[in-house]
Design a protein around this nucleic acid. Structure first.
Lengths: 328, 328
DNA sequence: CTGAAAGCGCTTACAG
DNA sequence: CTGAAAGCGCTTACAG
């Protein structure tokens, strides 16, 4: 691979200065004489020249890369959000680098350092884990955006997500209205704001009188499967299960299917997120619809049209709705 | 956001030259006196310094970014491969930028230009579309890697994937051995090498005597759903369907479920890829297992340990196997 | 073991 | 409308 041509090569070939070539490629072509412009165009074409983002970024002290950290690469809702963000950023001329923190604080911190090294325009954290390094970065930079999990106490940064408490509350209320019995909550890890808010809302929505069995697990199909197996092996009861997200619900579903159970006669199941897959592979799953594809525009606006920092963090709270299907 | 500290700031604070600071951060710490090293470490720590990848890339004329283009962000097999590649590249200290070409030649060409601008270390194309720009880039650069779809005639670049003809052939043979009747092939677009190889293999494996109805559609659930509806609405026949990938199979499955059909009594269904979701949401689907998670190491080795270019393109052909479950 | 200096590819304020 | 020159943050061959 021979080295790619530079402004200099184009300048030489077209007989102008590098300044003119640069103007041509950075949207200042209007200030160039038509003849000059033509010859620059031809030279660039002949050489196959594309300006180096690296040179440009260095010169402008500003890169066009945005880093997104996801907590779990296998979560489909997370993937939907990432796709939405990538699309929205592209319209502003930005690239997105996706990295998987895998719910591991060490890995997350490593990736944060990488993002810093790339001088990322913004760092978007889906499901951040509270670590000293994250706190320090939030203090030094103001380009962190928290998605789906609120920043830890004392960390000042914008948050984009839904009102998890209210959503959980609506589900609890629905369970109460339908008079579902043997209620079970399988929530995600309690240290994540989304998990505990969903759970608390659910409990409050159900009301005090109802007793609820509570399990806590990872936000994964594996986690839901394990809890499901334990729960369903014990008794032949018709449980009414609220899961912390759809992935957990898929896992419970698998455990139920293995025991030949049918919905909603043998088991009531409620998910959370309504990732795009449901429509195709889990059209039976009642769940809370979170508008994954509205996250992109919301986040991109935060990145590209930052408000007055004096006003403090600009949170964006998106709407949700209950999506009722066969399983509940 | 104040500007991040530079080598210079660290050098000033620790009373050494920028050269020494740079040595500390680029793995040449062994050649630094212990005292000096200590003071550099402290200064960097105090300032929260992380070296700029941009400065480094410019100086070394070599970036650590690899771009991966995917043909369809909603394809789960593609996503599995992307995750595998990202992980493998990370171990070599490289970042991956994921971009969605959405099976659109214009969009692909735009993204190729972006990748060029980033001076990507390598450009990985899952499911490339043959365009003049792609050909020209393949000619100028030697850092293109084709995955799952072979490069077009005359384009010299490495290919990583399975032997699609052989896999299709095995499925055809299996259909013949089981004496499946009313055979149907729903293949992906014919212009993609993978599609036509899978189809041809299938036909050859079935043997001349069998007639096969053939549909061609996009590699998506939507595509499979539409064909499925058309096919299943016509007659009450037990079809034996080989799909070009799992996504198509999911779509056919949905159409069948809507008509209350059951597998394999009412319909025989065979997919292709065995993406990770099958285990959880489609454990009934017989398919061809393609080892998505072996792609990462294979591709990373191509990127980071390039062989002698004189030897020509270094193709890597991965193994596959038939995964037989309930649907066939 | 350490530093001064050059240069990677760009953009832009300044001067003409 | 155009160019010469400075400088963005790094690394390294060279000299000491």
């Amino acid at each position: 691979m021979t080295k790619p041509p530079t402004v200099r090569d184009v300048a030489r070939l077209s007989g102008v200065s590098t300044a003119t070539v640069s103007r041509y490629f950075s949207g200042k072509a209007g200030a160039i004489a038509p003849d000059t412009l033509e010859s620059v165009r031809n030279a660039a074409e002949a050489l196959g020249y594309t300006p180096s983002e690296i040179g440009r970024s260095l010169r402008l002290s500003r890169s066009r890369v945005v880093v997104m950290l996801v907590p779990d690469a296998t979560n489909h809702f997370t993937a939907d959000v990432a796709a939405s963000v990538e699309k929205a950023l592209k319209e502003y001329g930005l690239s997105m680098v996706l990295a998987n923190a895998a719910e591991d604080p060490k890995q997350q911190d490593r990736l944060l350092t990488d993002a810093l090294g790339l001088r990322a325009r913004a760092i978007i954290l889906q499901g951040a884990i509270d670590t000293p390094q994250l706190r320090e970065m939030a203090g030094r930079q103001n380009n962190l955006i928290f998605v789906n999990r609120r920043p830890a106490e004392g960390v000042l940064a914008p948050y984009v997500g839904i009102d998890n408490y209210a959503a959980g509350h609506d589900v609890g209320r629905y369970f109460r209205d339908r008079e579902y019995e043997n209620c079970v909550a399988i929530s995600g890890p309690r240290e994540f704001s989304g998990s505990s808010e969903r759970l608390q809302g659910f409990l409050d929505g159900l009301g005090r009188k109802t007793t609820v069995r509570h399990f806590e697990t990872a936000f994964t199909m594996e986690g839901g499967y394990e809890v499901g197996r334990e729960l369903l092996s014990q008794e032949r009861t018709r449980f009414s299960v609220f899961c912390g997200n759809d992935m957990i619900a898929y896992g419970v579903h698998r455990a139920a299917v293995e025991r030949q159970m049918r919905f909603p006669d043998d088991l009531v199941l409620f998910g959370f997120d309504d990732n795009r897959l449901n429509e195709w592979l889990a059209p039976w799953l009642s769940t809370v619809r979170v508008p994954a594809f509205d996250f992109g525009p919301a986040i991109a606006s935060l990145v590209c049209e930052p408000g007055d920092p004096a006003e403090g963090a600009a949170n964006i709270i998106l709407p949700f709705e209950l999506k009722l299907r066969d399983s509940a």
